Amino acid sequence: MKKKYKITIPFMDLRDGGRFIEALDLHTGISYDFYEVEFEQMEGEKYEEVKDYVMRRMHFIKAGAYDDENTTDY
């Protein structure tokens, strides 16, 4: 299966430590731009796939795999 999303984190909100995440669907061109907390709270079938992908990637990012304020998931 080919990768479906490209994730970038253009900035972090220093007040509450939240990351702003851009998840681009490489097949449809739709961009999902939300704070990490908003991704965690997403409900519904429409967002299930992007939410699962972002949450799995954030697990690695938080563990330090590629954690900086300009993180890009290639």
Rank of each mutant, 00 (worst) to 15 (best):
G18D: 15
V54E: 02
T8I: 15
M55A: 06
E38C: 07
G44S: 03
Q41M: 08
F11R: 07
I61D: 05
F20H: 06
A23I: 01
I30T: 10
T72H: 10
V37K: 14
A65Y: 13
M1H: 11
L26W: 01
F20L: 06
V54Q: 00
Y32L: 01
D16C: 11
E48R: 13
G64D: 05
M12Y: 03
E48I: 11
I61Y: 02
Y47W: 08
S31H: 10
F20I: 07
T8M: 10
E43T: 13
I9N: 03
L26Q: 07
Y5V: 00
F34L: 15
K46G: 02
Y32K: 01
D68F: 11
I30P: 00
F60T: 12
G44V: 01
F11N: 12
E45W: 01
E38P: 03
I21H: 00
F60Y: 14
Q41A: 13
D52Y: 09
K46N: 07
D13G: 00
D13P: 03
M12T: 14
Y35D: 00
F11C: 10
G29N: 06
E22G: 07
F60C: 09
D33H: 09
R57Y: 13
E49L: 08
T8Y: 05
S31E: 13
G18A: 14
T72C: 12
M55L: 15
E43G: 08
Y74H: 10
T71N: 06
V37F: 14
E45A: 10
G64V: 04
D73V: 14
Y47R: 02
K46V: 12
E45R: 07
D67M: 13
D52I: 09
M55H: 04
E49C: 03
I30C: 05
Y35P: 05
I7A: 03
K51E: 01
V37C: 09
K46W: 08
D68I: 05
H27R: 11
G29V: 07
G17P: 04
K51V: 06
G17A: 06
E43V: 13
T72S: 12
E40H: 06
Y74G: 12
R19N: 11
K6F: 08
E36T: 08
R19L: 10
T8P: 00
L24T: 10
Y47N: 04
E48K: 13
R56C: 08
M1P: 09
D16M: 08
E36W: 05
S31L: 15
K2A: 14
L26P: 02
S31W: 07
F60M: 12
M42R: 02
I30R: 09
E22N: 12
M42K: 03
Y5A: 02
Y66L: 12
K46L: 10
E43Q: 15
D33Y: 08
G29P: 02
Y53H: 07
G18R: 12
V54G: 02
E36H: 09
E38G: 04
V37S: 15
D16N: 14
M58H: 02
Y47I: 04
